[in-house]
Every structure is written in structure tokens, then in C-alpha cells.
Amino acid sequence: MAAHKPRPLSPHLQVYKPQLTSAMSIFHRITGIGLALGLPVFVLWLLLLAGDQPTYDKFIKIAHTLPAQLALLGWTWAFFYHLCTGIRHLLWDAGHFLKIKDVYKTGYIALAVSTALTVYVAYQYLWVAS
């Protein structure tokens, strides 16, 4: 009997030229992972809010340092990006905007909307408050 021959594998990511479509797809996944890592921080925030104020104030003081504010900015963008591209995915699942021209159009719209919302929210919540 012939031994098992390894099955051929499809060419991997680095073979392809980067395109808007593939880049936005992988960023949907990366922002999803980032947001999943943000959820425990949100829970920590709630837990400290349920405790006394001095401990809570220490947490807020850390949250106002530059690295934390940068992380918050990243999470804000990830949130709006994942929200916009997520809606785009739901529309695809419903059978809309599947022509390559529409895929690019909705891609640019998602990028523009998520960036605009991030700039607005960052101005409103992050820099103004601190």
C-alpha cells in the first residue's frame, strides 16, 4: 500500500500582493482580538467602581498616563473599525455589495466612517477630559 503523501497546501499570505480587501479582512480579525483583550479591562473598571473611591481614583490616574491613553485611542479605533466592518460582513451575509466594485466602495466607507468617529470620540472623551 502506498504511504500517505502530504497533501498540497495552498500558497500562503506572503505570496499575494497586499490589497485593500485582504488587509481589511485581517484587520477585522486583529481588532477583534484587541477588543476581546479590552473586555477584561472594562470588567476591572466595573469591579473598582463597585469598590471604594481612593482605589478607583488610582486606576483613573493610571488611565490618564500617556501609554494608557494611547491604548484607549487604539481600542477606540478598533471598536469603530470592527463595528463598521462587522456591519459590512452582515450585509455580505445577507447577499448585498458582493460585486468587487461594491466591496471596495464599502471598504473605503468603513475606513472613513471608523476614522472619523475615532477622531470625534478621541477629541470628546480622551483629550478634553484629561
Binding site: F42, L90, Y125
Partner: peptide, 24 residues
């Protein structure tokens, strides 16, 4: 994901608003 459109926008945005306008 459909449910999270309103469920993430409303609480998270309001939470950040309340945090920055009055804190604890």
C-alpha cells in the same frame, strides 16, 4: 454581532461620557 451594535454603542458611550463628566 447584530445585537452588539446597539448593546455596545449605548452602554460603552454613556459609560465613557459619565466617567469624564463627574467620574466615580
Amino acid at each position: 454581532s447584530l445585537a452588539l451594535i446597539p448593546l455596545s454603542l449605548y452602554p460603552v458611550v454613556t459609560f465613557f461620557l459619565a466617567a469624564n463628566h463627574g467620574g466615580y
